[in-house]
Design a protein around this nucleic acid. Structure first.
Lengths: 219, 219
DNA sequence: CCCCCTATCAACCTTTTGGTTGACCCGGAC
DNA sequence: GTCCGGGTCAACCAAAAGGTTGATAGGGGG
């Protein structure tokens, strides 16, 4: 057949089954393979490419438990010969996620609570080489243009990471060999950029925007 | 037919389709209805009960965007006449979630990354009036027994959750209608139990031990 | 009944944070 | 060269958080 062949990448069997059921109900779409994480996805892509049975669109989740995450996987896929478009399908619509995905070369960004027709439409668009953004995502990007995203420096991110482990200003200072005064200066800058006024709120905001990973959550 | 009739409750169409596809592949299971949130679930249950077509098991997500959340919905369902067992199927395995669900009367707790057979088995167990815990959840509860985990009270966990959103003591006090002094007292207790001496460290410790979800991850 | 745990609140004090101002150095951009 | 942003530090003050003691009150369990 000459329909659109898809690779599903999601660590949840339930979601994979749902996408398969949902998409195969439409004419001209078939699921070529499934993968539970980025590594497996790359292997599948290569395997199918060798077989002369290339996939036309990759449907990719971002959060994937233990394995290679979706952003990394997307970058890797874009490095292949004649790479298929990658359509992100995830739960979260934080700007950090979206920007990271777009930077990695994703050609679309959909949310999992979208109705089937919307997802179907996005797959068609991706297969045709167009971009497809969920309405909510598009609106968010539009807002970003006017509202320039707060850009934290490397040092500030480093401070945030130490902050999230529960260290005091003094402990942070000792840890990275600067004075407590400098720590406070950095923190004031961070608070300003994140629009908060205390350290716990900074951690919450930074975690939400995926600037840092959640405290004690690296598995 | 006289198989097991299920009500699916999840705000993601993708997940509902996945569960439907996954479960109907097994003999003796059929999906009686679907609902996108707690309110809709209750309506469906009552409707089917009046029709003399009762559901045997409710498969319930916990996080449900705008509508009534899963814990509340579970409590409400357990108040009905001859209520069906509620099997929780969610993404997170934190203490707070699990305990809240069990307290609300859930008869099982499964994770969405579980393989189909495990979910199938859990549904059968729930229908038979037994409890069904995901291995990881069961292990977590077991570990609690040997490892004298600091046992936080419900109130303390609630404080921790608010803490993690970045609220100040005063803001927390207003939020739950107690005095700032009481907030501080609770915090002192929490610090003692977790072995820390400030709020950020408490959040890190509580997140690591899965007492609460990561900050900014509660949506 | 009494004791312990949970939850509530107050007063007091110390330490830590937050907020501001001003300063210096360095490297890259204009 | 000058300007600017990042990074460093100091001094100072106000506010918040941390720590202690003590007190009240209700619910269980021994």
């Amino acid at each position: 057949m000459n329909g659109i062949r898809i690779l599903l990448v999601d660590d949840h069997p339930v979601v994979r089954a749902g996408l398969r059921a949902m998409l195969t109900e439409f004419e001209g779409i078939s699921v070529a393979a499934e993968a539970a994480d980025g590594d497996a996805a790359l292997k599948e892509l290569k395997r199918l490419q060798i077989l002369g049975d290339p996939v036309h669109v990759v449907l990719m989740d971002l959060q994937m438990g233990a394995g290679m995450d979706g952003v990394t996987a997307t970058s890797q896929i874009r490095l292949l010969d004649d790479p298929p478009p990658v359509l992100i399908l995830t739960t979260y619509d934080t700007d950090a996620d979206i920007l990271a995905a777009v930077e990695a070369g994703a050609s679309g960004y959909m949310l999992k609570d979208a109705p089937p027709e919307q997802i179907h439409h996005a797959v068609l668009a991706a297969a045709a080489g167009q971009t497809a953004l969920a309405p909510r995502v598009a609106a968010l990007l539009m807002g970003r243009i006017n509202n320039p995203a707060p850009t934290l420096t490397r040092r500030e991110v480093q401070l945030l990471e130490l902050l999230a482990t529960g260290l005091s200003n003094r402990a942070i200072a000792k840890q990275i060999f600067i004075s407590e005064a400098t720590v406070k200066t950095h923190l004031v800058h961070i608070y300003g950029k994140l629009g908060v006024d205390n350290r716990t709120a900074a951690i919450a905001a930074a975690t939400q925007r995926r600037i840092i990973r959640a405290p004690g959550q690296q598995a």
